[in-house]
Design a protein around this nucleic acid. Structure first.
Length: 290
DNA sequence: GATCGGCCCTGCCCGC
DNA sequence: TGCGGGCAGGGCCGAT
């Protein structure tokens, strides 16, 4: 379940292995993997052949490979179970191999593996990000992430408090702040002692700033440990898992004692998924919003 | 326009 | 043993 720290770990690995290399051929092996490329798999394959990767960038959970000329980029989203692996060409195909990129130097190839096919790849034009950089057009609507130096804390606090929704829903809204998924939302809320149904328009600005500080703290700690992994679904480009799941305080900790107060963590239904919190440290608001 | 619920998809796990 | 249902969840889309 890759969120920002996991995607950043992958980006760093890819930057090392694929920057400066020229794609000889791209093979899309499952049509759903290229569903976001409107012209289809064959078009994607033909447009990538002969192109050189010049940088590997990230915003939130989106990754992109800028191509020579810097007018277009190969965009990748890992969804829930996507992996970008750098593998020797002789390695046997993974069960859920969805796309393969072979380079002209005939060194290790890049593979997109995705069990649940929520992820995907597409070729996109690059447009200005408004700060001298560029971003793929389909990523332009995604907000900057909290580890982005250009992230505007004060603007986020204003926009958050201008919403009339629940706090966790707002944390998961990638147009408000990107890179946060279910795991880090629960962890940051636990650290900030806030309930997921806290109405955003009733959240005091200082508390919002505390929450943002905790979001950054938990993400930086996870990044330092190579990300979170619960199973084999999240791995870096070498197929290795991170260690941060051993440091989780709320997510997945149902019935275990809260490390602050000792009361059991509860699991609650939220947006067709689960939310974990300490019932003592994270009290329900008077007017909960889902 | 903003908010919110439902759907896509596959494999694992549990209960019957 | 085998089957069916529930669950995991990011992003998109349609309904309100």
């Amino acid at each position: 379940m890759p969120e920002l720290p996991e995607v950043e770990v992958v980006r760093r690995g890819l930057d090392r292995f694929v920057t400066g290399r020229t794609i000889e051929s791209a093979q899309v092996l499952h049509p759903r993997a290229a569903r976001r490329h409107s012209a289809g798999s064959a078009d994607l394959q033909s447009r990538l052949a002969g192109r050189t990767i010049v940088t590997v960038s990230r915003r939130g959970k989106y990754l992109w490979f800028a191509l020579d000329g810097r007018e277009s980029a190969l965009v990748a989203h890992l969804g829930m179970s996507g992996q970008l692996l750098v593998q020797p060409g002789v390695a046997s195909d993974e069960t859920h191999l969805r796309a393969r990129f072979i380079f002209t130097d005939r060194g290790r190839e890049l593979r997109f593996v995705d069990q649940r096919t929520f992820g995907g790849i597409a070729l996109d034009p690059l447009v200005s990000d408004g700060s001298g950089g560029s971003v793929p057009v389909t990523v332009a609507h995604i907000a900057r992430d909290p580890l982005d130096p250009e992230f505007d804390d004060a603007l986020w606090v204003r926009r958050l408090r201008g919403k009339t929704t629940g706090l966790k829903r707002a944390l998961l809204d990638q147009t408000l702040i990107s890179g946060i998924g279910n795991i880090y939302a629960d962890e940051a809320l636990w650290r900030a002692r806030l309930h997921w149904a806290q109405p955003t328009d009733e959240l005091a600005a200082p508390k919002a700033r505390v929450l943002l500080t905790e979001v950054r703290a938990v993400m930086n700690e996870a990044l330092a440990q190579g990300g979170t992994s619960f199973d084999a679904l999240y791995v870096n480009v070498n197929g290795e898992s991170g260690y941060f799941d051993r440091s989780l305080a709320a997510y997945g900790q149902q019935d275990r004692p809260c490390s602050r107060c000792g009361r059991p963590i509860v699991r609650e239904a939220f947006m067709n998924r689960s939310s974990f919190r300490c019932p003592h440290c994270q009290r329900a608001p008077r007017n909960p919003r889902t």
